[in-house]
Design a protein around this nucleic acid. Sequence first.
DNA 1: ACTAGGAATGCGAATGATTTTCAGTATTAT
DNA 2: ATAATACTGAAAATCATTCGCATTCCTAGT
Lengths: 141, 141
Amino acid sequence: MISRLEALCLEKGLKMTGQRRVISQVLSEADDHPDVEEVHRRALLIDPRISIATVYRTMRLLEEAQVIERLDFGDGRARYEEAGADHHHHLIDTRTGRVIEFSCSELEAIKERIARELGYRIVAHRLEIYGVPLDEEEGKK
Amino acid sequence: MISRLEALCLEKGLKMTGQRRVISQVLSEADDHPDVEEVHRRALLIDPRISIATVYRTMRLLEEAQVIERLDFGDGRARYEEAGADHHHHLIDTRTGRVIEFSCSELEAIKERIARELGYRIVAHRLEIYGVPLDEEEGKK
DNA sequence: ACTAGGAATGCGAATGATTTTCAGTATTAT
DNA sequence: ATAATACTGAAAATCATTCGCATTCCTAGT
């Protein structure tokens, strides 16, 4: 069967190879924000002959085709998620690395307004909040 | 004379060496967002015997001491700015790389609210908008 | 189906930013 | 001043990512 991302790739006219199919499947099934090594690890479970170089190449390809989005949580490696319709942002738990997604239409509106006031059209943007759980804070007292 | 950042370092009890003084001066005088190589280049004009390794070490030291802030505009190298009192964000011109700073108290309030709703206390956050000038858009028509 | 030809892959080497190692030097408290 | 300790320069080491090249795999054309 065809994974969600594979279908998207076909729509965009990308040549589909065995390894791209596997990587598309991995990314379709992911509900987190894996880095390249993690994608490779998961891909190897499906087909053990995929090289990390191919994963890097494919991630770049998919990013350029806007099928996935590259994220950066400041830890030195790129993370990825499916390029969604909904504009959301990330709250990163600095203790555990857990990532919570959220979205806020007010935020979007304010951003648009700020860009317009500065004379710009937004081509991309990102908001990340790094935080620690409130309940753990209490625990420390 | 003592540069603004050098004073800050002294306050924080950092040992002040010749090269740290030079780097502090460079950073105090900068009104842009230089990367490590650029800081090194400017430092060399003041004292030609400063090594890039020392610049890297000092930038990290100053970042940890919260004297400067590390930025990341997605081009693979770290940028820095003086850690300011005012919470501002960056709009990056994707055509020229120019960086415009802006701040918005509404944004701050919304972010705080979102974090609280998710059960977190903010320890850091960042918002970057990447855009192209509106007037250049018109020119293309 | 069958084949040509241009992509895609795998491997290892190359890159670019950053960190570390280590021997020598400078800084600060005494 | 002096000792103890931290800092520096230079080069080697790392880490994530990209590239070069020989081989293999798709896709279009027949």
